[in-house]
């Protein structure tokens, strides 16, 4: 889906756990997620900590969307 969206002219960021698949398939802006059953959460944390983690991932995704790139790029969450 990610390529079709990009091809249609809309920049897209792919948040996913298995970044190698995303790279193979051809996403351009990639942000690593936490784990497959909970990409944007972590049940081991408190709700507040979990939300802070989710915010960090989303902020990284927004940064990725605002960054010009020439090749496939993985934006690590800081």
């Amino acid at each position: 889906m990610v390529k079709e969206i990009e091809r249609a002219g809309i920049p897209v960021v792919h948040i996913c756990t298995v970044t190698p698949i995303s790279l193979t398939v051809g996403a351009n802006r990639i942000v690593p997620a936490v784990a497959i059953p909970h990409p944007l959460g972590n049940p081991a944390l408190t709700m507040a900590e979990e939300k802070a983690l989710r915010r960090k991932i989303i902020l990284t995704a927004l940064k990725a969307l605002s960054t010009d790139i020439t090749e496939q790029t993985v934006f690590d969450v800081e």
Binding site: I5, I10, H14, C16, T17, S22, P39
Partner: peptide, 20 residues
């Protein structure tokens, strides 16, 4: 291919796609 038409029509400028 289908839903991206609506995104374009509605002037969506960026997409966040999440996968598990």
């Amino acid at each position: 291919d289908e839903f991206v038409k609506e995104l374009i029509k509605e002037n969506v400028q960026a997409v966040i796609l999440t996968s598990t």
